[in-house]
Design a protein around this nucleic acid. Sequence first.
DNA 1: CGAAACTACATGCAACTGCAAGCAGCTTGA
DNA 2: TCAAGCTGCTTGCAGTTGCATGTAGTTTCG
Lengths: 150, 150
Amino acid sequence: MTAKASESTVQAWTSLVRAEQTVMARVEDDLKRAGFPPLEWYDVLHELDREPSGVLPQAQVQGSIMLAQYNLCRLIDRLQREDLVHRQPSQEDGRSNLLVITDKGRDLRRRMWPVYSAAIEEHLGAHLSSGEADRLAGLLGKLQMVKEKV
Amino acid sequence: MTAKASESTVQAWTSLVRAEQTVMARVEDDLKRAGFPPLEWYDVLHELDREPSGVLPQAQVQGSIMLAQYNLCRLIDRLQREDLVHRQPSQEDGRSNLLVITDKGRDLRRRMWPVYSAAIEEHLGAHLSSGEADRLAGLLGKLQMVKEKV
DNA sequence: CGAAACTACATGCAACTGCAAGCAGCTTGA
DNA sequence: TCAAGCTGCTTGCAGTTGCATGTAGTTTCG
């Protein structure tokens, strides 16, 4: 399994990396200009806010976002410091933390969304028809299959 | 220009970010396992190595890769420390550095490519037909248009 | 000419990250 | 039942990044 990549594949690779980094940088920049924290803060708040109870085990949040465990741990430290989230020891499993979103956390997420959404629309949506967006999502979806064991 | 993003657009956005991060992590991981440095090292070496002379102004390398100016500066520090590249003051412009790739630098790039290429093939190419790869590149290309001034 | 603006590059500092290791608390199986 | 291994989370350290700023060389133009 050490085949060389074809030209089409290499082209897809470079386009993928450049497009993601370009659009990501622009979206992050819009958030920053509006005085908001980085996207990863949004991701965590979003995971919790979509739960009516506003509570999830840290390990579950882990599974939903793309962050190393120690980085999530420290991100939670920062969120907690800003009173957006707090940790609660789990009754069921002494190792586990429950993360609880605060009102302030819910409010921040809610205020971030319009800016975030507009940025996605401006930097991505505006360049594609709705059909193109669907096709793009479809193709990208093929790349995320779970890594098979070796 | 503060329209909300459509559902298709948001789906394309999340697929884009996840696919890029997933594939990037896998490719970087393959390089690391093979004992090679990060991809950005490759990018710089590649820019220089494709020049027969092996020389380019730092500012021009800047334009080709996606790194903030101060980060390129420090990346060059590291490459220089490993004797892969060295800086040469420009005769024509006293502010400018010329970056010169060393034999060791050319050799490293050449040895990295098979691993890099195989990783791209495995983690991206293997999931797409050649036609799909072309279509993906085409769609992604639409996202990179130069940012218009406000 | 010469001051003001601009360009190329570098750097101090604080924040963030990756790695390796650590510490409970669970779970397993002889 | 209890030692060995696993899971969830945390942390010290060294390396990397972002931001703001600094320095020097170049261009512009009154």
